[in-house]
Design a protein around this nucleic acid. Structure first.
Lengths: 200, 200
DNA sequence: TATCCTATATATAAGGA
DNA sequence: TTCCTTATATATAGGAT
């Protein structure tokens, strides 16, 4: 996921896949070690490689067995509850992503309107006919309020400043949406929620 | 490990520990998902939190059980072999670190000698009495060879160039060694190898 | 193949809101 | 508490060796 943003999908090139496997396995086990030490918890990981019948385990076979035993002896009811873990996990991710998207759309709309407003001010004409007039006038009102507010507070003339808020451009937003729709593991895993994604 | 380089040790502050746990667990499971998808392998992770009797699992309870079953039914002999996994893993890390250290010591020695040599050339006297004369003269010989070689190849005069090879300074090397000795999880886990570390 | 390098993408500790 | 933000530390893809 560097030098090039890699898609989350099976790597067909074998040597590339193996190289990725090695690096990532190493880091994964390191991370497992870190969370276990830092937070003082029990954890284990089991990772199978393609060409070996035996998995690589962390932190040790013995410890894995200990954790597994604990896991296996959970009451059945608890187990059923835990069956939903992945779905819950993914739902959370999706909801978060959706909220971020909405937030950014709003930011972009605001930015677009701001831009349009200043164009109008400088050219004296409406440049774009495809605008939501209500929204546009709302932005203008808000901007006027801000200006008035600032003027009152400062008791000074200061010009109109457009906040540099780091919001994304429209093309960046499009990329974000595309990227989200490509998240197969989100899509495939939670069908009920996945369908909603299409309405983004 | 950002804003401040965090030591790999139990976080005593409870709220901080919980926050770290949540973040890291999320990332760990994400990573598990990624390696599984990218490399098309089976993997699972089980993480216990302090305040919950049930662990968080990835990718699902069902899949975890499938992987576990595969794991549990390994022939006993194979299991014993796998008992050594963590030790093997750590040994590899230690060996790699040791090799890097040796390499850098050599580079530093060479650099030191280079520096000394040019000081001698410019001042006309030996500045440092605590040198390994054999090593020093070897470096001089090597340098002379390089110069001769270059001259022969280029048939041009070109001055003596010291390669900018990015090797570390002596104080940086010391920091590296200190950092290595602080790696508790390396030290504590492999006693037999750990003792050798002290002789670095 | 294995290792090293390095430009980017991610993860994440602190510090607010 | 949970969510954001931001400055840094890590992870890691693609190349070079």
């Amino acid at each position: 996921m560097t030098r090039k943003k890699v898609n989350l999908e099976y790597i067909t090139n074998e040597s590339k896949r193996k190289a990725t496997y090695k690096k990532r396995k190493s880091c994964l086990l390191k991370k497992a070690n870190e969370i276990s030490t830092l937070c003082g918890i029990q954890a284990c990981a089991i990772v199978y490689s393609h060409d070996e019948p035996n998995p690589e385990v962390w932190p040790s076979h013995f410890e894995v067995q200990r954790v597994l035993h604990k896991f296996e002896t959970l009451p059945k009811l608890e187990k059923d509850k835990k069956m939903l873990d992945q779905e819950t996990f993914l739902k959370k991710r999706i909801n978060k992503a959706r909220e971020q998207l909405i937030k950014q759309r709003n930011e972009n709309m605001k930015k677009k309107m701001d831009l349009l407003m200043f164009k109008c001010l400088s050219t004296g004409t409406i440049v774009d006919n495809n605008i939501d007039v209500n929204c546009f006038s709302w932005v203008i009102d808000e901007t006027l309020k801000e200006v008035e507010c600032k003027r009152t507070r400062d008791q000074s003339q200061g010009g109109i400043h457009v906040a540099e808020n780091g919001s994304r451009t429209l093309s960046e937003e499009k990329e974000l949406v595309d990227a989200m729709l490509k998240q197969d593991w989100l899509m495939d895993s939670v069908h009920s929620v996945g369908n909603e994604m299409l309405h983004f």
